[in-house]
């Protein structure tokens, strides 16, 4: 009582498994290759000087990216100052207040903003702050552009984790006569804090690697930036400059910088995954 085409069907089933498996392997191959080359080229180039010294002028061997590494962290700090409060509070609105219609539009706008190319953000902030010299190419402008890019990211993830907080928590608190805003701040946000932090860290990891928006704002700097109104170096910018260059020593440093940046970004990504392992398991 088997169908006549039974063997053919079984064969097709196996064939499709093999083909789709091959595709999955093909997808992860670049990751493995990028990692392999970064480790191979970058590891030998990383030394103490890389973390402690400033870039050397063309022709001189050695030097490091100390200012770029510091610059990236400074920019991320500024970005967090702008992106986190606006993003989190906006996410609170989306999850806790608002009619469905307005919220649909806010969500839609946030999703659209997430799709705006990063280079576009760069020229917008250039036009907004740099061109009119308020304050020109500067750490401030660089922080602003990264912060603005974080807003829609943080907003959406915050909303999502807040909605995972069971309605019972809110009701229990409101039933005790506690004002809604205090319920939100002290029950809802507190319960979802881990998730919110996760979202913020992932958004930071995402903007940490951004290069295009920084080119016209932070601009880059071969030395230290003494004030926030001066141009500042950043790891991705420095990698880009060195990557384009024809000098072996600079390219060597670009590998090292790329390795450090990738490790930073991946460390956040993997760390966050460990932090939220249970939640993710429950979701899958």
């Amino acid at each position: 009582m088997t169908a006549p085409n039974h063997n053919w069907r079984q064969f097709k089933d196996v064939l499709m498994r093999v083909i789709t498996f091959a595709c999955a392997i093909l997808v992860v191959t670049p990751l493995v290759l990028v990692f392999y080359h970064l480790l191979k080229e970058g590891f030998t180039s990383i030394n103490w000087a890389f973390f402690t010294q400033l870039p050397k002028p063309v022709g001189e061997i050695g030097g490091g990216m100390a200012n770029a590494i510091a610059g990236t962290f400074i920019l991320l700090g500024e970005a967090a100052l702008i992106g986190v409060p606006i993003g989190v509070l906006g996410g609170v609105y989306l999850s806790e207040y608002g009619g469905s219609k307005l919220n649909w539009w806010i969500r839609f706008a946030a999703d659209i903003l997430n799709g705006v190319p990063s280079i576009t953000w760069g020229i917008v902030v250039y036009g907004l702050l740099v061109a009119p010299h308020l304050p020109g190419f500067s750490a401030l402008a660089g922080g602003v552009v990264l912060g603005l890019m974080m807003i829609p990211l943080v907003m959406r993830t915050t909303e999502e984790v807040l909605q995972l907080v069971p309605a019972g928590y809110r009701e229990a608190s409101l039933a005790l006569g506690i004002a809604k805003w205090r319920t939100i701040v002290q029950i809802v946000i507190r319960t979802a804090l881990k998730g919110i932090v996760t979202g913020v860290l992932l958004a930071l990891a995402r903007v940490a690697g951004e290069t295009a928006p920084l080119m016209f704002t932070a601009f880059g700097n071969l030395g230290w930036a003494r004030k926030l109104t001066e141009p500042i170096a950043a790891l991705p910018l420095q990698i880009f400059e060195y990557a384009k260059s024809p000098y072996d020593d600079w390219r060597r440093q670009a590998w090292a910088g790329a390795l450090v940046l990738l490790l930073l970004v991946l460390a956040i990504n993997i760390g966050v995954r460990f932090l939220t392992r249970d939640r993710f398991k429950a979701k899958i």
Partner: peptide
């Protein structure tokens, strides 16, 4: 997880590679 990590690679690094 591998695919998510691939998505996290900064584009300047991918370009350099």
């Amino acid at each position: 997880m591998f695919i998510e990590l691939l998505a996290a690679i900064p584009s300047v690094i991918l370009g350099f590679w």
